[in-house]
Design a protein around this nucleic acid. Structure first.
Lengths: 196, 196
DNA sequence: ACCTGAACACCGTTCAAGT
DNA sequence: ACCTGAACACCGTTCAAGT
């Protein structure tokens, strides 16, 4: 069989969702495609590069173009929720995305869109990048935690139904702390940070 | 040779700092101690448990008891910087600590101390935990990024000396956004969050 | 351009057996 | 209590060779 890059990414997404990140090996992906492991290295220079492509694919599937009429803070909140939903939609999605981001590949779309939203509030590029990274680190960390505990509960016997909304609540709380911190710099009279 | 748990942790810290997280394998640690790999399983149930002990050891080495006379926000900032310094003091320290925290083990000391500082500002336990996690996720994410890029630069030929302080600057900025967000809830008149 | 086959240098973990 | 020896079931990556 002869495959293209995107066919391999699609099968990798399947392996991730069905068997988890621990089982997402080059050998496993190759086997499910009926290929030798070495064949994957025709399409990707390394496993890291393949994982980056898988992470980007997850985020693209869960992302729609921005309407563009909202205020900067509503956009930051909306982008963060979209990111969270995209990662929660696949098994180990958050851990994969966080891992890929940790080794400095992929996941550039979300950070650029977050930074653009902050910049539209009137902040300079440097501040906007730093603020966007603060939001992004929170989102990755929080959703990784959520997903770890969700999956731990789903393995065990006890149903965590009464706690169902606690993830979203604490996500919104942490996110609002950061957004409020940004907004405060906007309101501060005589601040040097906001543009003209 | 006959070793105790702490001897193995100490050697693992050495392997981490000298060879990096990728080379921190059970077989490597065992070999450096002159043991069979299987011997380690007398002291630790799994590699994850050993890594958790290594992460806790790094944090203990970089942590001193709090003086206890500072304001809540100064304590949050001081604890965050202490945590950052502790992780930066060892090769791949941030990635290790973040990984251990991601699979739900160890690293409880820092989150408890952060939550205690927020609680002393007058917030309830639930808010304090959520605020502490927000700080912690930011710290782990930011310092992992810093360390990845520092090490990437140290491998390459170009010295990043002029950029030396940019990590600390953006760390302080992101941290202050979150602390300001917490403080704002304290100042808000008629808020239900702060305690009597 | 895309893949096979075979090899290299590794992994984490288990378990009977030794002292 | 602590360790050995041997095995099981895997890894990522390289590379000459095939079509």
């Amino acid at each position: 069989m002869r495959y293209r890059r995107e066919d391999i990414v699609e099968r990798a997404v399947g392996v991730l969702d069905e068997h988890g990140l621990a089982d997402l090996s080059m050998r496993r992906i190759a086997a499910e495609l009926g290929l030798q492991p070495s064949a994957l290295y025709h399409h990707f220079a390394s496993k890291q590069e393949l994982l980056a492509a898988v992470a980007d694919e997850l985020l693209e599937r869960g992302t729609r173009p921005e309407a563009g009429v909202d205020s900067w803070d509503a956009r930051v909140v909306a982008l963060s929720h979209e990111l969270r939903d995209a990662m929660l939609a696949y098994r180990d999605g958050a851990e994969l995305v966080a891992t890929v981001h940790a080794f400095g590949l992929g996941v550039n779309g979300p950070s650029r869109r977050l930074a653009a939203a902050v910049r539209d509030a009137g902040f300079d590029a440097e501040f906007s990048r730093a603020a966007a990274m603060t939001v992004l680190h929170f989102v990755f960390g929080h959703v990784s935690d959520e997903q770890t505990h969700l999956q731990a509960n789903s393995v065990g016997a006890i149903d965590a139904a009464p706690d169902d909304r606690s993830g979203t609540d604490s996500f919104d709380l942490g996110l609002s702390l950061i957004v409020d911190g940004i907004r405060q710099r906007l309101a501060a009279a005589g601040s040097v940070r906001p543009r003209g």
